[in-house]
Design a protein around this nucleic acid. Structure first.
Lengths: 155, 155
DNA sequence: TATTGTTATACTCTATAACTATA
DNA sequence: TATAGTTATAGAGTATAACAATA
């Protein structure tokens, strides 16, 4: 039987034991992911880009002319969900969809000059953000090891 | 100028270069998190528990009699969002809210016998899931290192 | 028949503000 | 005044099914 009134009633609360859940990969990854998204948004608030938007711009910049479905797949999202994202980026004049010769189903994706310059600014935010991660992780060796482990878990 | 028709039209598509985004901590963590949640749901489909539900049951089991806000804080979610979760667990007869002497605002949380036995089954699913992660990560040393790095990034 | 982009839909997760009853 | 639980709401993120145009 728990003696609630004796144990928890007076101001000095006993520390909550979260040791077991804290050793769970799933639990820790969930918590850290949430933290990191929030931190990302702080660093990227100036350029007003969400993680997935930055990913899309960066991928299109490095792979101009690709189809929507290709970029979506590389980002790991459904092509259906990529449509609204592209509409938004296009409305902000950051990207454009060009028609593809010999395949009138596809749209080839490109950055606009505005998109290029916003991406340049975003890359500076990314550098700051990644530097923050680097410092928290404890150096480049730890960071590289972390990326290796993430990819192992992903595959 | 990109030569789309020459580059991408014939069946053999050039591999998409995602090397730069793949080196981003934020991007890799996002992708891996998504993968892992899906994998978790597969392992936990038999007990029909989502990650956060399993976390709640485990925390309550190890800290019986705690207030909702304490468990919610330990899980890293808002107490407002914890209400529906507790309602659901209670409707499934897994947990119960007892009144607390000397503080009629609070609810003390406990597992029911049904909750205890489901948790026992869930712990077996968790063991399988964590064993899967362990294997992917490459052993206990890698897994422990991974947890250390996740916590460093979280703090 | 298969693929591309698209629409619609639904469900989860999270964040915030405000209410109530208590302290 | 502050706290615990609650309600309501809104915004992301993701998954699925279905459709039209095109291959």
């Amino acid at each position: 039987m728990e003696k609630i009134s004796e144990t928890y009633e007076d101001g000095a609360e006993a520390a909550l034991d979260a040791s077991r859940v804290a050793q769970s990969v799933a639990h820790q990854l969930r918590r850290t992911h949430g933290q990191l998204v929030g931190r990302f948004l702080l660093y990227f608030s100036k350029v007003n880009l969400r993680p997935i938007e930055f990913g899309a711009l960066a991928l299109i910049a490095e792979n101009p002319g690709r189809k929507q479905s290709q970029i979506a797949a590389a980002l790991g999202i459904q092509r259906a969900n990529f449509v609204a994202l592209m509409n938004d980026l296009e409305n902000r004049c950051l990207t454009e969809r060009r028609s593809v010769p010999n395949d009138r189903r596809s749209h080839a994706l490109y950055l606009t000059p505005t998109g290029e310059s916003l991406l340049a600014e975003a890359r500076r935010a990314e550098a700051d953000f990644e530097a923050d991660c680097l410092e928290r992780l404890g150096g480049t060796r730890a960071r590289d090891q972390f990326l290796v482990l993430l990819r192992r878990l992903f595959g």
